[in-house]
Amino acid sequence: MPKSNLTARAWIVSLGILLTFGLAWHLAVSGTSQTQAMDPEYAKLMGLSATQGKSAMPGPLDVIAKIWSHLKDPFYDKGPNDKGIGIQLAYSIGRVMLGYALAIVVALPLGFLIGMSPLMSKALDPFIQVLKPVSPLAWMPLALYTIKDSAISSIFVIFICSLWPMLINTAFGVASVRKEWVNVARTLEVGTFRRAFTVILPAAAPTIVTGMRISIGIAWLVIVAAEMLVGGTGIGYFVWNEWNNLSITNVITSILVIGLVGMLLDQALARVARAVHFPE
């Protein structure tokens, strides 16, 4: 069976699932439940879910309309607490990139050190094992208290959560480079640095990039939670602000947007992974 045919059929099935889900959702929320008769003066002061029994959950059409209204004007700025979704996303991506870049700067050299030196590997292992499972948000109060700046604190949280997968994968990748290649390099009297860059790095690159790909996923998960906590700007703040208003429509909209951006980030690193991949 040709491959293109399979892809086309997969698309059709995906679309079918989406439509079925959308229809089920629409039907589930469109009904109105029983409401008691109310004094008109009282009814005027109440919301739709109380007066008409309208479901508190918005339907798919409400969400689509909302997304359209956000897409029409993504970059408005009506003051410090009300910015367009495009600006909020830019803030979040900026924070993720900064924290992530810092993590790369620390994790790669440290990972090389651990991977190449069995002594350091054993010595640092207990620290890594204890710190790795800590939820990144648990660092937030400590960061706020010591760094004394909420913007840098959220970058620090991104840094700390993207550090571990990269560090561990780098160390593992470096340690499991085939011994023959390293030995050949040694026989040819290649210096340590040159060996690290020309032999070990290319050989360990696929494992390292896999670590980086896991990291970017975690970083994007964590930024939303971190911004909900400190507020101010970013897509996480946007979700929090709309939750404050109990606007489920906007919350669903931002869930979709967050998912989309996360997918794009992941795809970007998948491309890098393909570039460094080599057949053995």
């Binding site: 003051g79 410090p80 400190v230 507020g231």
Partner: peptide, 11 residues
């Protein structure tokens, strides 16, 4: 003056 919305009392 910029008035800035904040997420909670501890923050």
């Amino acid at each position: 003056v910029e008035v800035i919305k904040t997420a909670g009392w501890a923050v």
